[in-house]
Design a binder for these strands. Structure first.
Length: 466
RNA sequence: GGUGCCAUCGCCAAGUGGUAAGGCCGCAGCCUGCAAAGCUGCUAUCCCCGGUUCAAAUCCGGGUGGCACCUCCA
């Protein structure tokens, strides 16, 4: 397997620290609002990574945190006049619902900041004891970036001198403007925790390092195999996490770093002012979750992704083809066939998640199966192989888990389906009587529902095509 | 200002030295009562200039044009 390491800026062969397991940590959401398409992208990419690692025989321990201590949460709770946990519980649950709709499997571990305070205290104390952190008069504890020789080695950023000057003058009692808070001394009623450093709240970066140490780290040169997140987190978040871990333990944080690109909408940076499609839950009202998954995952995860409806619809047609093959194979038992397609697909995905190439391989398989079945609808071998191929695709990519007939009925209520079924039956009768004028009229009626019909040897099927 | 990424057919998009995958759209054909679906065939020399090399979309230099981060935003 090969992974593009965004710290070394090169594709590297993936060699796990331990043969027993692969440790993967991804920065999860801050639960103060509904998840948007960017959250979806990140979660999808690392869900895929996990599946591909597993398909390669690795036992993956995947942790994705929930940040439930944050100023934005406090602000929201205050605005709405509700408790902190009302907000965090609500949006944690909503996050799970959205992720599930996208076919994203639950991580092995989902540590919450509120449940990791002890680990954070331990981390901060170690940093203080080793002079990598200091507490100022007001109680804040800062990480001393100057004490870390390797600070900025993750992002490759350089300290900007002009910038530095300005901030020194305006800053507080921090030793250096780049120093960041490990513990913020606050004493408001909303959300404060007692700690060895006084009452307050942890800094944002603290939780990830602490959780990794607590749940995943071993004795190796690196705490974990792979650390992932959105491209925006490289600096300062991941830089700071790495510094904390480096200075409080005898290992670097991660052997491989992966960062997914941003999602833009119609060429513009996502923002709430652009409207509803911003949130996953709103997108799900219009599009099937699996269609969203397929679309968001269809290109290189590192590039920025430009979300727009035309591309999504074009992408959907590709998924449709897979489902039509699934229809042709409906009822087949899944056998574990060794096929060339599986080998090639896994190889493509194992090369830094090359989904684009993988989709080309799938298209080729689908076309070949259709061609063979067109020539001989009873070809047992191709049916077994294709069924097996589709099952593999479902497992490793998460595409194709639905009943193929229901897939094509997305968004239609039972009443409408019944009406369409009735019209289709009437049309079939008319066709039997060779009353084509009547059957064509009925077809027009059916198509008015945004539905296409197709006559096959197995009977007439209909699909919502819009 | 600092750091970094990107530029491939109308659109989306693979391909990191050996002579341009795939999908959408379009055209022609097979199939069909007609369709739809499916299948077959057809459609690019890779932003510009220069260099390295037997050989470059792929490496180097210079342009031009996008974009991101440097403000707790995935």
């Amino acid at each position: 397997m090969f992974i593009y390491d965004s710290v070394q800026k090169t594709k590297r062969e993936f060699i796990p620290l331990s043969k027993e397991q692969v440790t993967l940590y991804v920065c999860g959401p801050t639960v103060y609002d509904d998840a948007h398409l960017g959250h979806a992208k990140s979660a999808l990419v690392f869900d895929l990574l996990r599946r591909v690692l597993e398909a390669n025989g690795h036992n993956v321990i995947y942790a994705r945190n929930i940040t439930d201590i944050d100023d934005k949460i406090i602000k929201k709770a205050a605005e709405q006049g509700v408790g902190i946990t009302d907000i965090t519980d609500k949006f944690t649950e909503a996050y799970h619902v959205d992720m599930s709709a996208l076919g994203i499997e639950r991580p092995t571990l989902e540590p919450k900041a509120t449940e990791s305070l002890e680990a954070m205290f331990e981390l901060i104390q170690k940093l203080i004891d080793t002079n990598h952190a200091y507490q100022i008069e007001n109680g804040d504890v800062y990480f001393d970036t100057q004490s870390d020789q390797k600070y900025l080695s993750i992002s490759g950023n350089k300290q900007n001198d002009d910038d530095r000057q300005e901030r020194v003058e305006s800053s507080t009692a921090k030793k250096h403007p780049a120093d960041f808070a490990l513990w913020k001394s606050v004493n408001d009623k909303s959300l404060t925790f007692p700690s060895p450093f006084g009452a307050g709240r942890p800094g944002w970066h603290t939780e990830c390092s602490a959780m990794i140490e607590k749940h995943l780290a071993g004795d190796d040169k690196f705490a974990i195999d792979i650390h992932g997140g959105g491209a925006d987190l490289l600096f300062p978040h991941h830089e700071n996490e790495a510094a904390q871990t480096r200075c409080s333990s005898n290992h670097e944080l991660a052997n491989y770093w992966m960062h997914n690109g941003f999602v833009n909408i119609d060429g513009e940076k996502m923002s709430k002012s652009l409207g509803n499609s911003f949130f996953i839950k709103d997108a799900l009202k219009v599009y099937d979750g699996e269609v969203l998954r397929f679309y968001l995952l269809s290109t290189n995860y590192r590039s920025n992704f430009n979300f727009n409806e035309q591309d999504l619809l074009a992408s959907k047609k590709r998924l449709d083809k897979m489902y039509r093959l699934k229809k042709r194979l409906f009822g087949m038992k899944i056998a574990d066939e060794k096929t060339e397609m599986k080998t090639k697909l896994l190889e493509a995905l194992s090369d830094d998640l090359n989904v684009s190439l993988g989709l080309a391989i799938i298209d080729e398989m689908v076309a070949n199966a259709n061609e063979t079945l067109d020539a001989n609808p009873k070809d047992k071998l191709i049916k077994r192989q294709s069924t097996s191929d589709l099952a593999f695709i479902e497992k490793v990519l998460g595409f194709g888990h639905q009943n193929p007939f229901e897939y094509f009925q997305f968004g239609l209520d039972a009443d409408t389906k019944k009406k369409i079924d009735d019209l289709v039956a009437q049309r079939s009768d008319a066709k039997k009587e060779k009353n084509f004028e009547k059957s064509d009229l009925l077809r027009d009626e059916i198509m008015a529902f945004g539905v296409s019909i197709m006559d096959t040897a197995q009977g007439t099927f209909w699909e919502r095509t819009e």
